[in-house]
């Protein structure tokens, strides 16, 4: 397809195929008011928000790949290329160990705002406390340097959460002790609300 791709531009696409027992499909249908939203940390941008991050870092701030972010510790190139974390093994193990995971949202394009509501029923909304997990340097940098509404920021980037798991409150302690408290944060709660959306709160 000559002419389809510009010089020095390239595309990398993949297709994964898996299998599941029909009755075990995790689709969020059993989520109810009072269930907890647990956030599993990301490593960085994963694979979303790069067009904006690149524009800010390279075109507007004129930083190079070997320059430091504002924390003076994190190298730009390394921060941007931090690999997309795998969650499939963790999910498969949790299910094998008998955890009841009511809803799983892989936080990709659209961030927490667009992805979490894909997997809970109507009549509910997600209240998320955006200060309930630590922000790694790349996200601290984006918060400090982008004049964007919080909702836009959390729609463009994963902001440090790569996967959300909705569980009943009784499952929380077992999940945190299985994954470790730095690998699993309680970031929100499901509430009755006709909007079927995510509300971002400061506390």
């Amino acid at each position: 397809m000559p002419g389809t791709y510009h010089q020095n531009e390239y595309d990398l696409v993949g297709i994964a195929t898996g299998i599941i027992e029909r009755k075990n499909i995790v689709d969020g249908s059993s989520v109810k008011e009072g269930d907890l939203i647990m956030g599993i940390p990301s490593n960085g941008l994963h694979t979303n928000g790069y067009s904006l991050a690149r524009k800010l870092i390279f075109d507007v701030l004129h930083l190079g790949i070997d320059d430091m972010l504002s924390d003076q510790k994190t190298v730009v190139g390394n921060a941007l290329l931090a690999p997309h974390k795998n969650y499939s093994q963790m999910i498969n193990i949790l299910i094998e160990k008998g955890f009841t995971l009511k809803s799983l949202a892989h936080i990709t394009g659209g961030g927490l705002i667009d992805n979490v509501p894909r997997v809970f029923p109507g009549g509910l909304a997600a209240q998320i406390n955006i200060n309930s997990w630590p922000k790694i340097p790349i996200f601290q940098f984006l918060i400090e340097n982008l004049d964007l509404k919080t909702s836009e920021l959390y729609r463009t980037f994963n902001m440090g959460i790569g996967l959300t798991i909705i569980v009943s409150p009784s499952e929380k302690d077992r999940l945190v002790s299985m994954l470790g408290e730095k690998n699993c944060y309680e970031i929100g709660i499901m509430v009755t609300d006709s909007s079927k959306q995510v509300y971002l709160n400061e506390k």
């Binding site: 994964a16 898996g18 599941i20 499909i25 995790v26 499939s88 498969n92 799983l104 949202a105 997997v119």
Partner: peptide
């Protein structure tokens, strides 16, 4: 991760 978000392996 997308595949596993349904619970699948």
């Amino acid at each position: 991760n997308d595949v596993a978000a349904t619970g699948a392996k």
